[in-house]
Computed example of a mutant assay.
Amino acid sequence: MLKNKKIGFIGSGAMAEALIDGILKANLVTPSQIIVNDISQNRLDHMTGKFGVLTTLSIKDTVKAADILFLTVKPQIINGVLDAIAPLLSPTTLVVSIAAGITIGILESKLVRIPIVRVMPNTPVAVGEGMSVLALGHYAGEENGELVLTIFSSVGRAIIMDENAMDAVTGLSGSGPGYVFVLIDALTDAGVRVGLSRQNSLVMAAQTLLGAAKMVLETGEHPAKLRDMVTSPGGTAIAGIHVLEQKGVRAALIDAVQAATKRSQEMGKKSHG
């Protein structure tokens, strides 16, 4: 699928690094098929040293070489990047943007009649367990979607949704690692409170969340059914769950996702204004 494709990256930050790592580990392409552009020579030297990919300070060279062009830059500078690449793009170049809050409408207003895929990944792509949601632009076909899905599946799980779901996606999976880190930190404190060392407590808390998440994904069972398997009559787990329900943990998590979704909507309106 990606055999003869050249993949370009404009911006070589953490997300670009994670994606390149995943793409190469999955043997989707060879290092010589990847070209990375950045304004920092230090970053480019790091990418060459780590992955053996091609690097350049020239946006023009990157755009001209790429069949698939990733925009892995901060939203604040995306407009300047779009202005720079617009006159250089071939109509067949597939553009993939991970700039948060930058809609397909904004991208298509600058990159006319170009196939565009907007992606909202989350930070665990850095360890190959990301959750990425793709939305296809008006000129991106099914084949384009499958191509980008394959790339993001190399660093976790990926699904295609309508763009109007992106604020909700940001509220749940985009911001979600933040909520989970709070849970891990709190469970670690709890372990210390009941006499465990902080180091052991942290490993137990993090691995417990990882294992529970894996059970949900791999068994396909409803979380409530899996919870019922842990809660024996009059046992320890149900005593703990009773307290969680009493303290409104479930409602607090729902409220957190709602608040993050609302904030994403507000930020989107600001970027349009």
Score class of each variant (00 low, 15 high):
V29C: 13
S32F: 07
I23G: 07
L28N: 05
F9R: 07
G11L: 00
I23C: 10
F9N: 03
L24H: 14
S12N: 14
L28R: 04
S32G: 08
I23V: 15
G11C: 00
L24S: 08
G22T: 06
V29T: 15
G22N: 06
G22F: 13
G8Q: 03
V29N: 12
I10H: 03
N27H: 14
L19K: 02
Q33R: 10
F9V: 01
V29P: 12
G22S: 11
A14F: 02
I23F: 15
S32A: 12
A26R: 04
N27Q: 15
D21T: 12
I23Q: 09
L24V: 10
L19D: 01
A18C: 07
E17R: 10
I34N: 13
V36C: 14
I23H: 14
A26S: 11
P31Y: 15
G8M: 02
G11M: 00
K25E: 05
I35F: 01
I39N: 05
N27L: 09
I34G: 14
G13A: 03
M15Y: 01
A18W: 09
L24C: 09
T30D: 09
I23A: 10
Q33H: 13
G13R: 04
N27K: 15
G11R: 00
Q33C: 07
I23E: 05
G13C: 03
V29E: 11
I7L: 07
I39L: 08
P31Q: 13
P31D: 09
E17P: 01
F9P: 01
E17T: 12
N37S: 15
G11S: 00
A16S: 12
M15V: 10
L28Y: 11
K25L: 10
S12G: 15
I10T: 06
I39R: 06
A26N: 08
N27W: 04
S12C: 15
Q33S: 14
G8S: 03
S12M: 10
I7H: 00
N27M: 09
M15A: 08
V29D: 12
S12Q: 13
M15G: 02
N27V: 05
D21K: 15
D21G: 05
V36Y: 03
I20K: 15
P31V: 09
